[in-house]
Nucleic acid binder design. Structure first.
Ligand code: SF4
Ligand code: SF4
Lengths: 145, 145
DNA sequence: TTTATTAAAGACAAATGACTCTTAAAACGT
DNA sequence: ACGTTTTAAGAGTCATTTGTCTTTAATAAA
């Protein structure tokens, strides 16, 4: 069951890596993140470029350059990030791939799929990078391996 | 959010089409199903071949041939079918793609992803083709469009 | 026995997703 | 100015999924 694309997963992991940093000023090199998270440098670069273009990250070139969160991680909730990376219809899909979900006569699994989507959406709406970054800082969870 | 592959979706829809049939004896042509469900005949054929090999369907060639459910739809629960089509680890994946889910130190979203997976699994375990076929027969839900 | 009908099998092609590489541009230190 | 470090941009490659096509085999009916 793969819910997020590899690109989204790696983008999210990088954002969490940044949110978990102790120090807030300065930039974190993409090379360092790629090594630490075990992602290809070039692949991660491409993913982060898009996040920079979308205003979630700011970047800086040259020595000691890298990327940094462009906004307070307390205001960055998973929902916004996932919609940004996966598309705005992320929470509006049919389990059986039928078009017009929710509006028209439902598919046979509508009843519980609707619940599942709603629960997931709510969680994404109420979970911020700040919150998850904190959990990483105290060492309760992992981002790699 | 695409949880099931196209192949699984179309396989499931075909199984539901069969489970919704009034008459239980005889075979249903793949051509008919492909037309009705708006799936390419050849693509559907390939999908159903695998379901036949796995013992969920039986098939018959020649005039008035086709496929039919090989088992009582009351004993066919979604979980078994999905595991069959998507692989046995379907309900054991990490939202962030980390290996060793559940056993090792969790990822930051473990807490609610675990719940989501469990809820989904339970629904799949308790929903049979018979039950969904009935809903289709009474016209409450749709399989195509 | 011949012909029509249907699924089985497998080769093949197209589309998508997942990366990789090369070159350029920006910033810095000397 | 020059060389080094680092991201930006985009072309290019590889793998997987999705979808198509052709040929064969089984069955029935004429
Ligand atoms: S389950 Fe119902 S609402 Fe959900 S996608 Fe399928 S049709 Fe749409
Ligand atoms: S959330 Fe926790 S348990 Fe679920 S997959 Fe990620 S690591 Fe494994």
């Amino acid at each position: 069951m793969q819910v997020l694309s590899k690109a989204s997963i790696n983008g999210l992991r990088a954002l969490l890596y940044l949110a978990a940093q102790e120090r807030r000023e300065g930039y974190t090199g993409i090379r360092e993140m790629a090594d630490e998270l075990d992602i290809s440098f070039h692949f991660l670069t491409k993913i982060l470029q898009e996040l920079t273009q979308k205003g979630v990250l700011r970047s800086y070139r040259g020595p000691n350059g890298g990327v940094a969160l462009a906004r307070d991680p307390g205001t960055l909730y998973l929902e916004e990030l996932v919609l940004m990376m996966e598309g705005d219809d992320f929470f509006d899909t049919c389990l059986l791939g039928l078009p017009g979900c929710g509006e028209r006569k439902p598919c046979p699994v509508h009843a519980f799929w609707k619940e599942t989507k709603a629960a997931l959406k709510k969680e994404f709406q109420t979970t911020s990078l700040e919150e998850l970054g904190q959990q990483i800082r105290v060492g309760k969870v992992r981002l790699a391996d």
